[in-house]
Design a binder for these strands. Sequence first.
DNA 1: CATTTATGAAACCAATCAGTTGCAAATATA
DNA 2: TATATTTGCAACTGATTGGTTTCATAAATG
Lengths: 106, 106
Amino acid sequence: MRRDVFQAIADPTRRAILVLIASQAMTPNALADHFDTTRQAVSKHLRILTECELVNPAPAGRESYYHLNADRMKIIDQWLSQFKSMWEDRFSELDNLLSTIKSTPK
Amino acid sequence: MRRDVFQAIADPTRRAILVLIASQAMTPNALADHFDTTRQAVSKHLRILTECELVNPAPAGRESYYHLNADRMKIIDQWLSQFKSMWEDRFSELDNLLSTIKSTPK
DNA sequence: CATTTATGAAACCAATCAGTTGCAAATATA
DNA sequence: TATATTTGCAACTGATTGGTTTCATAAATG
């Protein structure tokens, strides 16, 4: 069972869940209202997000508020950082254009 | 066929390919030497990376050098940016600790 | 010109994925 | 206490995934 943050954010519904709870913790039912799927499907996404610790459930009575653990996003940011110098380089656009031209079949 | 950058970087082999060609463009054969899979498997990964334009092939004779298109990584960085203020907040660590404590079953 | 090398595409396979329905447990409410 | 609500888990299903083997094409080499 591979359960890393990269696989977790690969699904568009899970990315949307993360964005939703970023502003406010939400229950599975409240989240499900925002999607065209069943509550159970959202619950499964929450399980995956919880397993890789991108979210934390906070039980409150019979409800459970899922909080974003933004700290875990650092993992993605850190991986991205090794490429950042390449796209911040002001010549990178030209490089990409040239390699695209070279790779275009005649 | 969903082929976005988030799905592309979900696979660890594809992430490793991106890191390898970041420093130098490489052919499929040269890349395959770094993995415990067949050349054809690497070729399939390259097809996926090409389809979402994370890499560009540059044909050279019977070889084909795959270049990184670091610019496309911006898409991930932009998505991440909406959370960045949360983990840069010096109180976020404390927040996470508190929500973890609250969610721990008694 | 025949052979070797590099590549990409197709067909197939086991495993995983995202979704569903159904159910059980726990909490709130009448 | 009986009922309704909220949640999580198990079982199942069709689609997708990452991998393999096989084959065809194109370019370099003898």
